[in-house]
């Protein structure tokens, strides 16, 4: 597969492209280390929604439990937002932004939904404290995302995390 083939054209709504077999939404920002997506702040509440991107879901394995901190808890970028268990392995879900947890998706009681619909199943809503500053450290932009995502898939394949 050539690099051009790896990045397919937009799907119906123009905001979704298929990259190396994974769907990538171009209207979201991505935390590159944890493979979390971050939606832009809501116009009325200022909250941002956070979820796992499809590559994050794929490389995590079968998610058995996903728990986010309580509403009202302040989280800092790079520190635990919650915890996740897959393959009997427990680790933190790392906050992509500093802020206060405003909502936790009740759908997390069935973690399978995150796997089946990564973009449709947000994990938490956070009111960010430093959106302008911290969002600059996220990957975003329709011109940049497909190539970045393709590089990530190739890296995971090289490391053996994803099947070739």
């Amino acid at each position: 597969m050539s690099e051009d083939d790896a990045v397919a054209g937009p799907t119906d709504d123009g905001q979704l492209v298929r990259v190396e077999g994974f769907l990538v939404r171009l209207d979201l920002a991505y935390e590159p280390d944890g493979h979390l997506w971050v939606a832009p702040p809501d116009g009325s509440t200022g909250n941002v929604r956070i979820g796992l991107d499809p590559l994050g879901v794929e490389t995590t394995g079968t998610v058995a439990h996903l728990v986010v901190g309580s509403v009202g808890t302040r989280v800092r970028r790079g520190e635990p937002l919650g915890s996740l268990e897959a393959e009997k392995f427990v680790g933190p879900l790392v906050a992509p932004l500093t802020g206060v947890i405003r909502a936790v998706n009740p759908a997390l009681a069935t973690p399978r939904q995150v796997v089946e619909d990564p973009y449709g199943t947000w994990v938490a809503e956070v009111l960010p404290e430093a959106w302008e500053e911290e969002s600059a450290q996220l990957v975003r932009g329709a011109d940049r995302l497909p190539a970045w995502f393709a590089d990530e898939v190739r890296r995971f394949r090289l490391e053996g995390v994803l099947a070739q």
């Binding site: 280390d33 994050g56 490389t59 790079g78 996740l84 680790g91 933190p92 790392v94 995971f156 995390v161």
Partner: peptide, 10 residues
């Protein structure tokens, strides 16, 4: 439960 957490995490 410190970082790194998930595959690809920092």
């Amino acid at each position: 439960l410190e970082t790194p957490a998930r595959p690809g995490s920092r």
